[in-house]
Amino acid sequence: MGVNTKAIKRRIKSVSSTKKITKAMELVAASKMRKAVDTALKTRTYAKLAWDILVDLSKTQKSEIPLLKMRRVKKVLLILITSNRGLCGSFNSNIIKKTAIQMQNPQNLSRQRVAGKDLVTEGKLEVDVLGLGRKGADFAKKMGYNLIASFTDMSDTPGLADVLPICKMAIDGYTNKTYDKVVVAYTDFKSAIAQTPKLRQVLPISEHDLEKMVEKFADHDLKTGKAIIESEKINDYLFEPSRDQVLEIILPRLVESQILQSALESAASEHSSRMMAMRSASDAAVEMIDELNLNFNKARQAAITQEIAEIAGGAAALN
């Protein structure tokens, strides 16, 4: 038994303890993911119902609520949702890459998407970044973006209380015309193995983006499409105290629920990509241990064979 086998044995030990850690992290991430997905699904009902009301309201007439008004875009607030911790595969780098591409392409970022015509801005576009999660904030700092705030104390499944300060910043910034557009960069949770980084416009509230969001509910709740068509018939809604006041209450809440939804989707994506990363790490560790075991056995056998040969050689020399 030479030095060689000892070194291999030590490596096997270290790889298997790493495997234990990655396995544990995988299980933890799996349960956190389940919780986040669950909460994300629960929030959809509210967003959908609030949106339904808004659709019903917009049937009657267009109104002059500040949160619905579109302006030429000079300054954008970008809410970048990432994770606080690493070891989650390409989760953070994907969303950061997507954001970086958008930052280099101000034309696209500044466009107001309206059916038929697009409002395009000339001149320079300013972007402020609000980091939600440490990784994104670090990235914004490194790239020299104008980072106005970073929230790094989010829980694993963010609740409304966690995102309220962010919503307030966004809504206030929009109403007092500091920002002409608010965008959320988040990771959309499609399934445990597929997540896509996305940018979604939150303010001004655009039918285009909201409809896309509501479409997602369609798989979850088949009635959506029908409900919108049905509601077109009724125009005799009563509003108390008045239509505009109702809108003023609903719109900020719609924004809040949208931001909450994005945060939850990101949380679910983070945990699932961590789960996948840890699973492949565990698998790689198992493979490595197998190989090391084989090497160890070979080395051990070689040592034994050599010893026997030496003894046999020694005995032959004595005769």
Partner: peptide
């Protein structure tokens, strides 16, 4: 409890949105 006072809604109420 609405902003304009307490209301009671019975079945077949007309469509209504209130704060």
């Amino acid at each position: 409890p609405t902003t304009t006072g307490e209301i009671t809604i019975l079945p077949n109420h007309t469509p209504l949105v209130t704060i």
